[in-house]
Computed example of a mutant assay.
Amino acid sequence: MAMVFSSLTPVFIAIICVLIGLLLKSSKRNTKQEESKTHKKAASRPWVDEDLKDSTELHVEEDDDGGEWQGLEDNIVHIPFSMEHYSEEDMVKRSKDFYELLNKRRSVRFISDEPVPREVIDNVIKTAGTAPSGAHTEPWTFVVVEDAEIKHQIREIIEEEEEINYEKRMGDRWVNDLKRLRTNWIKEYLDTAPYLILIFKQVHGMLPDGKKKTHYYNEISVSIACGILLAALQNVGLVTVTTTPLNCGPRLRVLLQRPVNEKLLLLLPVGYPSKTATVPDLTRKPLEDIMVTI
Score class of each variant (00 low, 15 high):
Ile199His: 02
Leu19Ala: 08
Ser107Cys: 10
Tyr99Glu: 04
Asp281Arg: 09
Gly249Phe: 00
Ala2Lys: 12
Ser27Pro: 00
Val239Cys: 02
Val120Ile: 14
Ala277Leu: 03
Ala277Gln: 03
Ala131Asp: 01
His59Gln: 07
Lys28Leu: 15
Cys226Gln: 06
Val241Gly: 03
Asp49Trp: 03
Asp172Pro: 15
Asn30Glu: 14
Leu265Trp: 01
Glu160Ala: 11
Ile16Trp: 10
Lys41Tyr: 09
His152Thr: 11
Ser82Pro: 03
Pro250Trp: 03
Lys211Trp: 00
Lys25Asp: 09
Glu159Trp: 03
Arg155Asp: 03
Tyr99Phe: 14
Glu159Met: 13
Thr243Glu: 15
Asp64Val: 00
Pro208Lys: 07
Met3Gly: 01
Pro245Lys: 05
Val108Phe: 02
Ala2Gln: 10
Trp185Val: 00
Gly271Met: 02
Tyr272Gly: 05
Tyr216Phe: 14
Thr242Leu: 11
Trp174Ser: 12
Leu238Ser: 05
Ala232Pro: 01
Glu167Thr: 12
His59Glu: 12
Glu219Ile: 01
Phe200Cys: 02
Asp113Trp: 02
Glu89Ile: 06
His59Pro: 01
Glu288His: 13
Gly71Ile: 03
Val292Tyr: 12
Ser274Asp: 08
Asp90Leu: 05
Glu61Gln: 07
Glu73Leu: 13
Ile224Ser: 01
Ala148Arg: 15
Lys104Asp: 10
Ser55Phe: 07
Ser27Gly: 09
Glu188Gly: 06
Glu156Thr: 13
Ala232Arg: 03
Arg182His: 14
Ala231Asn: 09
Phe142Glu: 04
Thr141Asn: 14
Ala42Asp: 13
Gly249Ile: 00
Gly71Pro: 03
Glu114Gln: 14
Asp172Leu: 10
Asp172Asn: 12
Asn261Thr: 02
Ile186Thr: 12
Ile220Ala: 11
Thr141Glu: 15
Thr38Pro: 00
Val124His: 02
Ile111Trp: 01
Val77Gly: 08
Gly171Pro: 00
Glu89Phe: 09
Val77His: 13
Ile157Trp: 06
Asn75Glu: 13
Ser44Gly: 04
Phe5Leu: 12
Leu8His: 05
Glu119Asn: 15
Val241Thr: 10
Asp74Gln: 11
Ser87Gln: 05
Ser221Gly: 05
Glu119Asp: 15
Arg155Asn: 06
Gly171Trp: 04
Val236Thr: 06
Lys53Ala: 04
Gly249Cys: 05
Pro117Leu: 08
Asn75Cys: 12
Lys212Trp: 04
Asn184Trp: 09
Glu146Cys: 10
Arg182Ile: 08
Met291Glu: 09
Ile290Leu: 08
Ser221Tyr: 01
Ile199Pro: 00
Val292Ser: 10
Val175Tyr: 04
